[in-house]
Amino acid sequence: MGSRQITEKSLVMLRSLPRLSLANIRDNPGSKHYPKRGRGQHSGDKHGAGNKGSGQRQNYMRLGYETGNNPFYLRMPHEPYYRGHHHRREYPPISLLEIQKLIDTNRIDITKPIDIASIVKSGLYRFFPDQKHFGINLTDEGVDLFATKINIEVQWASELVIAAIEKNGGVITTAYYDPHSLFLLKNPKKFFETGQAIPRRMIPPPDVIEYYTSAEKRGYLADPEKISQERLRLSQKYGYELPKLETDQYFNMLCERKDPRQIFYGLEPGWVVNLKDKCILKPRDEELLQFYAS
């Protein structure tokens, strides 16, 4: 039994062998591939470069050149399929199934509100604000088996997803974050270490203000009354009973939302967080307070 176990077998084997030293170690045979030099009839002589011409003289023609005739990459006129692609916003998707997996494996804390910072912290969401990523797009894969009550804040969600979350007694909000805020949310530790004051979150650009002020999309700037009307409408559309949030034990947590100018939960703009000394520097000056409150 003992001699068939891998670890025990190898360690026991070591005891009967000479002491492991610099002189008796080597790499696995076949792990190193040394480049073969060109010698002999086949790879020698002209060494694969052929006869005369730009090939042998290492004076190659540019890529795409077709020795004079109109090359393929110039035959087609400019077709602007990607015009303005660098102006468009991208919302990398994460499905409800993924969120459920993260909740099941304890990588997201459901007793606190979930926002983009907590999803990025879990380590399983690829998010790069410098590549025109503007937030989370919650997709509807796993909408049938999603069964958790959460307070989640994303940047884009479809009606089905909103219905699934509200059916389970949760709360979903769509909020806008400008790119600077997204960098902060992606790596809050790095930001706090710079010693800068937490900035204000910027308001959404004109083309997307309508989205974030609509109650159908649970926008963070929408009218709360209209949102509750929409919740009722969705419950009737998809045929589930609208759960009562007021009687819920997590009612306070589910109601927690960020101010439109706030980036992190619980931390106001203008504060400087000192991680080393575990203290927060809060401005007292009237000017600063007015600025950060505006």
Binding site: G2, Q5, R15
Partner: peptide, 11 residues
């Protein structure tokens, strides 16, 4: 000491 091969599951 080196040549002493101990059997058993635990070392």
């Amino acid at each position: 000491k080196r040549l002493n091969i101990t059997a058993a599951t635990q070392i």
